[in-house]
Design a protein around this nucleic acid. Sequence first.
DNA 1: AGGATTTCGTTGAGCAGTCAGCAATTGACT
DNA 2: AGTCAATTGCTGACTGCTCAACGAAATCCT
Lengths: 159, 159
Amino acid sequence: MTRRGDQAARAANSQLVQDFGLLIKAATRLEQRIDTALRRECGISHTMLEVLIRLCRKPGEEVSQRRLAEDLTLTSSGITRLIDRMEEAGLVCRVPSPEDRRSVWVEPTDHGHTVFLEAATVHSHVVERYFVTPVARDDYTRLTDALSDINEALRNAAD
Amino acid sequence: MTRRGDQAARAANSQLVQDFGLLIKAATRLEQRIDTALRRECGISHTMLEVLIRLCRKPGEEVSQRRLAEDLTLTSSGITRLIDRMEEAGLVCRVPSPEDRRSVWVEPTDHGHTVFLEAATVHSHVVERYFVTPVARDDYTRLTDALSDINEALRNAAD
DNA sequence: AGGATTTCGTTGAGCAGTCAGCAATTGACT
DNA sequence: AGTCAATTGCTGACTGCTCAACGAAATCCT
């Protein structure tokens, strides 16, 4: 009984657990901060900004809901409802794909472009302040390298 | 019009945006993976594990709901409902604090300890595989240093 | 002491996502 | 060509959180 308590304490205090906790905490806190800033100053959520980023990246390229779902790690129904809200807010519009009649393309409206430019400014201020500045100059590239490696490992995993 | 599109494309393609995207993606994907593994193999969510970690850390120390809320970046009502579910699942129990009658202490039950030990194993396997292994040996400490710095900056921020 | 302010937890209402099941379309295999 | 499987997006029912408002307890301020 006491034995198990000690065992549990050891597990709870492992370095692995602490380190991983840092990642989760940093990400959620950063996202929250960006989200509230965006809501207050531009009236959109962080998720919506992530959509707009993808839509504005390559002006010619068409982006399907499916692609957005994978990119944002949302389910297809999650994307459906998200795009519903964004369409209602006048940020994007749906265009039926001429190539594949199951598929729907999402395009930014003029208003979407405008809001995106405002939001991008807010976004980069927060990121600059809490993500770039606090990190030592030569740790920064290590950090992004490490994050790329993690993402790659996750992408290549079968399960 | 075209001008604004180009401007938007530039903003969407900025290195800052890409880098930050890596962090968010890595964190959410990792969390999802852990969550589904835990649900399948132990019947608890990742959030519940985070609670159990805090409860088992120092066996003597009492942990209030408030403290949990801050640590997990949840609102107090979020914690109330989370602890409701965990209590119902027999993982923890609430104990009124004798020091402050507004406050409630949360303690792990025997069953909570047992489940925690199982869950910690699953957790560390996933973390080992997708967080530690993919990252180059001397990038790892840089990564955790950077994450600590970010968290510190977030904690010290007034707003 | 005693009234204003703050803190802790709870509750109702609402929001943003999931999961399971569906219809329409497309691709793959003989 | 013709069936069978896979893919794409949508919907109903649900989950897990937030926000706003609250009551009870503690703290502050004269």
